[in-house]
Amino acid sequence: MSRKVALVTGASRGIGSAIAKALASDHDVVINFASSEVQAQEVLKSLPEGNHSIYKCDVQNHEDVKMMMEEIVKNYGHIDVLVNNAGITRDNLMLKMSDDDFDKVMSINTKGCFNCIQSITRIMMKQRAGKIINIASVIGLIGNVGQVNYAASKGAIIAMTKASAKELGSRNIQVNAIAPGFIETEMTQVLNDDLKNKMLDVIPLKRFGQADEVAHVVKFLASSDSNYITGQTIVIDGGMVM
């Protein structure tokens, strides 16, 4: 009996990489990347034994996403889990934000998530089973100065999660979102100490989260243990948003 197959978008680094590694213990994992092939290969090499692979695809492009899904089904026979993790930031104050900075964030973060959900829906409907897990952010819940585009994109993902869960629930497809808070990744490493300390002041647990802590919740949502959970947004933020 073949193992379940999980596709993780934007999995060449950061939270996506941690998710791929967490799922690889009991899934064959497809590591999606847009440009960082060397990093994607490194993630692939780090995975435990299994029929894992990498796939280059820009999730902004509807036709490319559709082709990726078809190719995965051709190679594996099915797709059981989709983790929409691909995303970017282009921060600036609203008055200074360019059209390109707004549009690019919305295109990759929100349209990319939509493209993947839409393309995988027919596959999962035929299977009458599937798990879709969208990586949102607490910024989509509370907003943040200098991140109007990012907040809008992640808030839209949370709304999309609820609508998709209602559309797909009758076909035994669960759709949930995870909203991480401040997680130690390449993006947080560039912050100065003063800003980090200000962030820690509003986190009751007084530390940043780890990518593995997000990945463990994704693994739970990808498992049969979460079969009666859908349309939910699980916040992983050390208590920052309550």
Rank of each mutant, 00 (worst) to 15 (best):
K4M: 13
K4E: 14
A6R: 11
L7Q: 00
T9M: 05
G10I: 10
S12R: 04
R13Q: 14
R13G: 06
S17F: 13
I19H: 00
A20P: 03
A20I: 04
A20C: 09
A20Y: 02
K21L: 15
A24K: 12
A24N: 13
D28P: 10
V29E: 08
N32I: 01
A34S: 15
S35Q: 14
E37V: 14
V38Y: 12
Q39L: 14
V43P: 06
L44N: 06
L44D: 07
L47M: 15
E49Y: 08
G50N: 07
G50R: 09
I54M: 08
Y55R: 09
K56I: 08
C57E: 04
D58A: 07
N61Q: 11
N61D: 13
H62F: 12
H62R: 10
E63S: 12
V65Y: 00
K66F: 07
E70S: 15
E70H: 11
E70W: 09
E71T: 14
E71V: 09
V73S: 08
K74G: 12
K74L: 14
K74Q: 14
G77Y: 11
H78G: 09
I79T: 05
N84Q: 03
N92F: 05
M94L: 12
S98I: 05
S98V: 05
S98N: 06
D100S: 09
M106R: 01
M106H: 04
I108A: 00
I108S: 00
N109E: 06
T110A: 00
G112C: 06
Q118S: 11
S119T: 10
I120N: 01
T121Y: 04
T121D: 08
T121E: 10
R122F: 09
R122I: 07
R122P: 13
M125L: 10
M125K: 15
M125E: 11
G130K: 05
G130I: 07
G130T: 09
K131H: 02
I132Q: 02
A136H: 00
V138S: 07
I142G: 03
G143A: 11
Q147M: 05
Y150G: 01
K154V: 01
G155A: 04
I157W: 00
I158F: 10
A159I: 03
M160W: 07
M160F: 15
K162A: 14
S164E: 02
A165P: 08
E167D: 15
L168Q: 03
G169D: 13
S170G: 10
R171W: 11
N176Q: 09
I178V: 10
G181T: 13
I183E: 01
E184Y: 11
V190S: 15
L195F: 14
M199V: 12
L200I: 15
L200V: 14
V202A: 13
I203G: 02
R207G: 12
G209T: 12
G209L: 06
Q210H: 15
A211P: 14
D212Q: 15
D212M: 11
V214R: 01
V214F: 05
A215Q: 10
V217H: 09
V217S: 05
V218P: 04
K219G: 07
A222E: 04
S223F: 04
S223G: 07
S224K: 12
N227A: 11
I229F: 08
T233Q: 02
T233W: 01
T233G: 02
I234C: 06
I234F: 12
I236G: 00
D237V: 07
G238M: 05
V241L: 03
M242S: 08
